[in-house]
Nucleic acid binder design. Structure first.
Lengths: 199, 199
DNA sequence: GAATGCGGAGAACGACCGTTCTCCACTCTG
DNA sequence: CAGAGTGGAGAACGGTCGTTCTCCGCATTC
């Protein structure tokens, strides 16, 4: 829980608070108290609140990429790897603390007022799109497929967040299956590639 | 531009400001000045800022429904009506002022702190899902198709907003075409829509 | 013309924001 | 033990927020 690095500890705490209630709803004093550091130390670690926000987003980006990559790498076939993303989403949506994509939320709250936050969201989404595009290319799918799968993932996140229910992940997965099947029809319909044995 | 109803005029102005910069970034004094009303009058029209936010969302909900409905009704076949939604999105994304879905933005900014805002977003999205589900049913499509098409629309909105480019609408449309085609295979590609399943 | 009420302009208010500063207990070093 | 320096607690600061209040010009009415 508490890491050895005080900086990381502050970022973890800030992430939890910002994500749960919004950035502007959490004051520096509350963050200081929750993180158990003095205000002086807080400002010694970070020059401003905005820098904390950016550090939180950077951490979220890293954790997201690790989580997706780990889940994808657990699948063996190129096709299963494409769909693994939605299983990752399903697990995420089922968490009690789930409240949508932190980048979308931050973009909506601060994107118009902080170019750096907007840019962080842009880079994060772009990075995911590139990753999926690489998966599609490896699987031998057409270039169109990547963006379409990403749009499904984005839509599932906001839908699940606002509805407060996790079923959007499964719906997006089924849609993705259709798109993948249509874009990359398997030569053998019986499908020797169908080894849906996970973990 | 300026409506006869001062209340509506305030809501229009608030919508423009809130949408462009975020709710919390716009103070009541700035809104008062932009709308050209006195602070006293502003608080005579609305008891609090939150009520203005809710009125803005209600107006946005109405305009969105009218816009989508008008666009859908311009199409003649049930299949074209399903895809008309994405053409509407394409036009919207191309607007200079486009900055994502106002409900998603408001939810990200205030959803955790204002149950009423969260509920407004939920109702709005749910209403759209019901509308699409009705279109799907009329077209004779399976129940699964509606949520999938909605997820594509949601994903296109956030993708276009964060990327700052409108191409997500076309990508979502192409994906939707595939989903529709897979779920409702036309016997002849020329398309006899009359041969759909009856109610 | 005097009384009355309405609405506009904007000052005032209390709260809270992000950030800085003051003060002091404490721990090292000699 | 004396002195220096570090870091914690939290007060202070300037600013802004949402909201309320005061003041005053002005139109209406008897």
């Amino acid at each position: 829980m508490d890491s050895t690095d005080p900086r990381e500890h502050v970022v973890e705490t800030a992430d939890r608070l910002f994500y749960a209630r919004g950035v502007q709803a959490v004051g520096m004093d509350e963050l200081r108290q929750a993180a158990g550091v003095s205000l002086k130390r807080l400002y010694a670690l970070f020059p401003s609140k905005e820098e904390i926000v950016l550090a939180v987003l950077a951490r979220r980006h890293r954790l997201w990429e690790e989580g997706v990559r780990e889940r994808v790498d657990r699948s063996d076939t190129p096709r299963a790897r494409l769909l693994a993303v939605y299983d990752h989403l399903a697990d995420w949506f089922a968490e009690d603390s789930f409240r949508g994509c932190g980048f979308i939320n931050a973009f909506g709250e601060l994107g118009a007022v902080s170019p750096q936050v907007a840019e962080a969201a842009r880079v994060h989404k772009r990075s995911f799109q590139d990753y999926v595009a690489a998966l599609v290319e490896t699987a031998g799918g057409p270039a169109d497929l990547g963006p379409q799968l990403c749009i499904l993932a984005e839509g599932a996140q906001t839908t699940a967040a606002i509805a407060g229910t996790p079923e959007a992940a499964a719906q997006a997965r089924r849609a993705a299956e259709v798109l993948v099947q249509a874009a990359m029809p398997s030569e053998r319909s019986g499908g020797g590639a169908q080894r849906t044995r996970d973990a």
